[in-house]
Structure formats: structure tokens, C-alpha cells
Simulated scan of single mutants.
Amino acid sequence: MRKYEAMFIFTPELEEEKRNSVFDKMKGIIESNGSIEDIDEWGMRKLAYEINDYKEGYYIVVNFESEKEVIDEMERVSRITDEIIRHMVIKDEQ
């Protein structure tokens, strides 16, 4: 298994309950064949540039270990989930 870091940016008007529900789905994908090491909620931040008419977003960063298949599924689900306006997964070289 490899170590990864994922960042999710959620729409700013999303209610906490709905955001947690969507994020729980992402955690479930990771935990299906991996383990979460750390979750860091950055909260509401201003975006570097406007995305789909949004100037702010709610940031969550996750450090985890998993197989490559988990990354593919997580990216697929992130692309089709309207509540996530951006996502990024990088391999942690530490």
C-alpha cells in the first residue's frame, strides 16, 4: 500500500449534515481497501480563482494508505458528485 493525500473542496452553501454525508461516502471508499491516518478540516477558505461562480469553498484534507484502485474509484465518484467542486490526490513520498 502507498501513502496518499487527498484534498476535497465542497460547495460553500452546503449544510454540514449533507457535507458530512458526502465525505462519509469518500471515507467509505478509502476504508474499503485502505486506512485513514489523518483528517484535517480547513473549513471555509477563499478560492485562488472562481470555480463555477464560487469564490469560497469548504476544504478537507485526508492522509491515508491504500491501493491504486481506491484512488481511481475515489476520483470517479468525486467527478460525478455535484457537492465537490474540486478534488486532488497526490502520492505522499514521505
Rank of each mutant, 00 (worst) to 15 (best):
K27E: 12
K3P: 01
I51M: 01
F8D: 07
D38A: 11
D24N: 15
E56S: 12
D82T: 12
E17I: 14
I84V: 10
E56R: 15
E67P: 00
E83L: 06
E65T: 03
H87D: 15
Y49H: 12
E65N: 14
E67M: 02
T81P: 07
T81Y: 01
G28M: 08
L47A: 10
Y58C: 05
N63E: 14
M7N: 09
G28C: 05
S21Y: 07
M26K: 01
R86F: 07
I30R: 03
S78T: 05
F23C: 05
A48H: 08
K55M: 10
I80W: 08
E50G: 12
D82G: 11
E65Y: 12
I9M: 12
S21W: 03
A48D: 07
N33W: 04
K25P: 01
I36M: 05
E16R: 11
I9K: 06
I71Y: 03
I90E: 09
E75F: 00
S78L: 01
Y49D: 02
F23L: 10
A6M: 05
F10Y: 15
R19S: 08
Y59F: 11
V77D: 03
F64E: 08
L14Q: 03
D82A: 15
P12R: 06
E17Q: 14
I29V: 12
F64V: 10
V89D: 10
I60M: 04
I90K: 01
G34A: 08
A6K: 01
D72L: 12
I84N: 10
W42H: 04
T11Q: 15
K55T: 14
E15M: 09
N52H: 13
M74I: 10
I84R: 04
V89C: 09
E13W: 03
I90F: 08
K27N: 10
N20F: 08
M26S: 07
M44F: 12
E50N: 13
E31Y: 02
S35R: 05
N63R: 14
D53K: 15
